[in-house]
Write a protein that binds this DNA or RNA. Sequence first.
DNA 1: GAAGACCTGCTA
DNA 2: TAGCAGGTCTTC
Length: 271
Amino acid sequence: MPELPEVETIARQLRARGVEGKTILSVKVGWAPTVTPFSAAAFSAAIEGTTIDRISRVGKWMMLSLGSGKTIMIHLRMSGSFSMEKGSHDRIVLKLSDGLTLYYRDTRKFGRWKLVDDPDVVLRGLGPDALTRRFTLNYFAAAMKKRHRMIKPLILDQAIVAGLGNIYADEALWESKIHPERRSDSLSDEELAKLFKAIKHVLKVGVKNRGTSLGAGKTNYRDVEGESGGHRAEVNAYGKSGTPCARCETILEKIVVAQRGTTFCPTCQSL
DNA sequence: GAAGACCTGCTA
DNA sequence: TAGCAGGTCTTC
């Protein structure tokens, strides 16, 4: 679930909670496959006693830069989250200095913590982060024009632009009135500019609203404080099939595009 | 491209 | 009980 706005929210809240600067006193790994490429014991041994100097984010990756020089790269995948309080499905527990305890929760167990010497080895496989100045209209338009693929899977491709997931991809396409199955090289300059702007816009507003939570339950997104994301009220397409389009009242349709559920307005976003 | 794998839990 | 889920990876 977590896409760029959710990961950004979590990173900000961990900073606000004072996690930067703390020492990792002890580590408990409850689901060994979460940590890679080490065993749970080797992973714990490698990070115990070091400090968390800095928390940063690129795309959907969150990085903890350690005093040891290594970096923990965290990907939340579908259900990863953080809390300062014990809960169910806590997969990793970090006891920090000053009495702080960090709980990494992940119901579906897809999330991964990679301990690396050099984060660039992972990050160079990503396109520019969608909310940075490195992600420009020129770059985006050129990348779309040189491919002949459906637009939705292309904007979900992290190697092209990092940060969008299924929710914000549907939102950006709805906002720019582009059908998710349009071929990328069939889009006009004007459409590309609109889509580019919409991508930045939906993510920015998503961050402002502290991400999107769809409902209740253990796999639903919660921020570090246990709160739901406020962006749900702003969602226009994702998860709203069968309800009227906020622009034209046409009933939104759900289809499958590249194996992902996709909601769009058949009138505003015609092929 | 598509389909399956990795997992658990919610919803219909 | 079947189908689906905010993500990515591997193997056709």
